[in-house]
Design a protein around this nucleic acid. Structure first.
Lengths: 343, 343
DNA sequence: TTGAAAGCGCTAACAC
DNA sequence: GTGTTAGCGCTTTCAA
């Protein structure tokens, strides 16, 4: 069953191909009646213009791509899902086409990013799930379409950074702990090659420094964003340093690990040890009397990324805005606002 | 900066367009040296074949689309994310292209599904997020490419159903409650137009009937998959019917609502009232001593959908399999295996 | 081993 | 208002 082409429609309508094309593209110089007849036939024959043909004819619709690195089967944080839905919606709101692309470290080596963009005919690109040493991140420097990176600071002038102000957010979280009376605040960080980890570490240092508190090497642990590792690190930490009365974990998952260790040590989360996480994953509000954490609005980030790229492509103001507030400290039981005072 | 075309490459290589095309498509009749030279130039000039051009030339790569209805900003269950990543991976494993499409009830009215498929050049289609009365579901009957529906039984012979056996799964869950000693089991269901809701209702009835237990009208409540509504329904239920000692909720979110109501009534979840959910959302294992629930493997469902459609398109066996086990009862504290016996 | 030429479905000058 | 024609980038006979 061959696909019906514009020629078939023209024949059926007894007009030329041109006239059909014009009618379908709303040219002003087609008689109303002709146009209606053509539209009628189009419907009857179920004609759909071939995109490839249109493209060859010189019509190219702009497309924004979301490129996700190392897509995982599951994603407890909902981050990627949020980016995706946010970007989808901003593209829909702006009437620009959206495509989802995925890659992994192997593909990154095989196919240059530029090639991928060209192949997909992208007019704009948003990257997510990359870390600073991924090949594509470096190739980004030479991409000649508007592009943005979520959750990573490339430092390239042509690349938009879409991220909560991680330094600021971590600073606020730690400052909150300080204000609630905590004196000895440990940090469970991620890997050094992950940008957000560095930023949150920086925020942690800033807050302590501003409060005139020392930054203690041994209270800074690395758990690679892994719950189990965070559990073990915290267990060690508590054994080695009895003074610790608060732990800032730069992800909720690690915070869960920490809480686990705290309770196992016979201490009470939120009382003996305050624990603050980062992300506000859906589970966060259900555990340990609620996990105090820095909520990231992934949907808004995705929406913002799409909107900003759209603006660069079209030169027009994007309709609809996700609101600029990308993070917010959610205060819950694991680190209450007022410190519990020992009797 | 114009895009470099095959003509530019041909010129630079001092050969004809034909030769370049052949070289790039691995025709056997191109001298090794010529081929190498062309490939060299292709790299230098950063030439990427124009997909539209290729398509016009007669080469069409098959594409499988995942069409998501009413994409939500957030998705606590992770279902859609799982479908997406599963399908992405099965397509990648099979070397077939994957595209993500979205729609909503408004678009469904505006654009016929057939038109959408034609426009996107789909060779196969997987639908998710639809309910039985969505226009697209009916249009599915006349789609002439392989298609599948996730979590909905269309009854159309040409449409694959990708879903856990909801009747069977619900039956198992309720039977488990019966075996653990529960006598008066209530049901919190969803909307009647949602297929999974009906199936799980059916499973509930089957289990009770098999055990010789009556199906009591008043113990069957409708909470539209809404946590808050489930909370209120459960509150009423417990007030009206003191005999109830177990509640089967056909979604985890509703189970949370139910548990909330149970505790509020001064009863203990898992002891006085056993609560079983459905989905095993990430949060489930953290609350009420763990929610006993029917886990659905969304990733496997997505993978399976992609693989089956691929098989229909290509006539070849799909590589890699997600395993056929799409659901599994996760027994946790909210409905322990052995009933607590009152002293 | 190579290339000329036709054709894929469509758009857009331009002529009628 | 309508049709003729060239051309977009590519593949593919077929001839050389």
């Amino acid at each position: 069953m061959k696909r019906v082409s514009i020629r078939d429609v023209a024949k059926a309508a007894g007009v030329s191909i041109t006239t059909v094309s014009k009618a379908l593209n709303n040219y002003p110089d087609v008689k109303e009646e002709t146009k209606r007849r053509i539209e009628q036939i189009v419907r009857e024959m179920n004609y759909v213009p071939d995109m490839a043909g249109r493209s060859m004819g010189g019509i190219t619709e702009p497309v924004i791509g979301l490129l996700i690195n190392e897509l995982q089967p599951e994603e407890p944080s909902g981050a990627v899902y949020g980016f995706l839905s946010g970007m989808c919606h901003s593209c829909k709101d702006n009437g620009i086409e959206f495509v989802l692309l995925t890659t992994d470290s192997k593909s990154q080596k095989q196919t240059p990013l530029k090639r991928l963009c060209l192949k997909k005919g992208l007019s704009g690109l948003v990257c997510s799930g990359f870390s600073l040493n991924d090949p594509y991140i470096h190739e980004l420097a030479e991409i000649d379409i508007p592009c943005a990176c979520i959750d990573i600071e490339t430092g390239y002038p042509n690349v938009l950074d879409i991220t909560v102000d991680n330094v600021q957010a971590a600073d606020e979280a730690v400052t909150f702990l300080i204000n609630s009376g905590r004196k000895n605040i440990a940090l469970i960080a991620g890997r050094g090659d992950v940008d957000v980890s560095n930023c949150r570490f920086q925020g942690y240092c800033n807050a302590l420094t501003r409060a005139g508190m020392p930054i203690v090497q041994d209270r800074i642990r690395n758990a690679h964003f892994n719950e189990n590792l965070a559990y073990r690190q915290t267990r060690d930490l508590l054994k080695q340093d009895e003074a610790v009365d608060a732990i800032f974990c730069i992800s909720d998952l690690m915070a869960f690990g920490s809480c686990h260790a705290v309770e196992e040590a016979g201490l009470t989360v939120g009382k003996d040890i305050a624990v603050v996480g980062f992300d506000d994953i859906p589970t966060a509000k259900y555990v340990y009397g609620g996990l105090t954490t820095v909520r990231q609005d992934f949907y808004a980030m995705g929406y913002l990324a799409g909107a900003q790229i759209y603006e660069q492509i079209s030169g027009e103001k994007s309709v609809g805005s996700p609101g600029e507030l990308l993070y917010r400290l959610m205060i819950r039981g694991s680190a209450p606002a007022k410190q519990w005072v020992s009797a």
